[in-house]
Every structure is written in structure tokens, then in C-alpha cells.
């Protein structure tokens, strides 16, 4: 596993040019995630229209893994229904789970592959201390979704 496989170009691109980093004018949900051990921070805001994510923001600071994961996440969930987003969170977390490699079929060309750019983060699994960086935005997103269902 070389460093180039960890720091893929797509990861560095999202780190340098994060998507959807502007706070929303009107957010239906707002959750803040922090990793107290390393200090990574991600704030997720969601706007929902007719059951779909109509706008999203992920703002934060931290390493390339946490921030690119947040940026790719915003691209991946925009336009999806809340149910689809929950499914995506599960798939992402499963991808990051070292023990679940076998049943995932992570070949991006396989039929039904949906993780897209996010699969670039697979390399993180080889660096166990960094997995929490990749997961932080998704855990925060799950908290934001919980707010939606609570309200």
C-alpha cells in the first residue's frame, strides 16, 4: 500500500477545493461533529424539500481525509431522499470497516456501484488511526438526519 493509494488525486482535489462549504441561508438540520482526539471538526447543514436533500453544506477544519470525505459526501447526497442518504451512510461505514471487506464488492465498475468518488477513501482502511477521520462527516450527517426525523 503506497502513500499514493492513500492520497489519491481525487482526495487531494476535494481537500483543496471543497464543495458545498458555504453555510446555508435556511437549514432544516444542523449538526456539529468533532473528534476530540485529533481536533478534526465538521459542521453539516441540510435543507430538505419534498423528502429530498435540496441543499447541503459541510464546513470544517482538519486533515485531508476528514475534509475530503466531507466534501465528497456533500456531492454524493445532494438530491437523494433521506432514506437513500441513510443507506449511503451505512454503505460508507461498511466500506470503512476493515471486517466487512468481503461482502462489499467494492469494484467501482460492478453493477450497482454507487459510492463513486467516495471509493477513493478505501485506502484509509489500511491506516486504522485515520478511519475515524473519514467517518467523522458521516457520523455528523447521521446526527443531522436524526434531527430531521425528530422535528
Amino acid at each position: 500500500m503506497s502513500l499514493e493509494e492513500l492520497y489519491r488525486e481525487v482526495i487531494l482535489d476535494h481537500y483543496r477545493n471543497p464543495r458545498h462549504r458555504k453555510p446555508l441561508d435556511r437549514a432544516d438540520a444542523h449538526a456539529e461533529g468533532v473528534n476530540p482526539l485529533c481536533g478534526d471538526e465538521v459542521t453539516v447543514e441540510l435543507a430538505v424539500t419534498d423528502g429530498r436533500i435540496s441543499d447541503v453544506a459541510a464546513i470544517g477544519q482538519g486533515c485531508s481525509i476528514s475534509q475530503s470525505s466531507a466534501s465528497m459526501m456533500t456531492d454524493a447526497i445532494l438530491g437523494k431522499t433521506v432514506e437513500e442518504v441513510r443507506d449511503l451512510i451505512q454503505r460508507f461505514k461498511a466500506m470503512m470497516d476493515i471486517d466487512h471487506e468481503a461482502d462489499l464488492g467494492l469494484d467501482p465498475d460492478r453493477p450497482g456501484a454507487v459510492l463513486g468518488d467516495l471509493e477513493a477513501l478505501q485506502g484509509v482502511r489500511r491506516y486504522p488511526v485515520r478511519i475515524k477521520c473519514a467517518n467523522l462527516p458521516w457520523t455528523t450527517l447521521a446526527q443531522a438526519l436524526d434531527q430531521l426525523s425528530a422535528s
Binding site: L3, L6, Y7, R16, G39, C63, S64, I65, Q67, R130
Partner: peptide
């Protein structure tokens, strides 16, 4: 530059160099 210290620490570790990164 804009390389986060955690990323630096991971890269340095791959070269056999143990440094700490964080607060």
C-alpha cells in the same frame, strides 16, 4: 503549508519517522 499535521504524521510514518501531530 496547508498540509494538515495528521497527514504529515501519516506520511512521515511511512518513511520510518515517528512524530506526533495534534494539539
Amino acid at each position: 503549508a496547508d498540509v494538515h499535521p495528521h497527514d504529515l504524521a501519516t506520511i512521515l510514518d511511512q518513511q520510518g519517522v515517528s512524530v506526533r501531530a495534534g494539539h
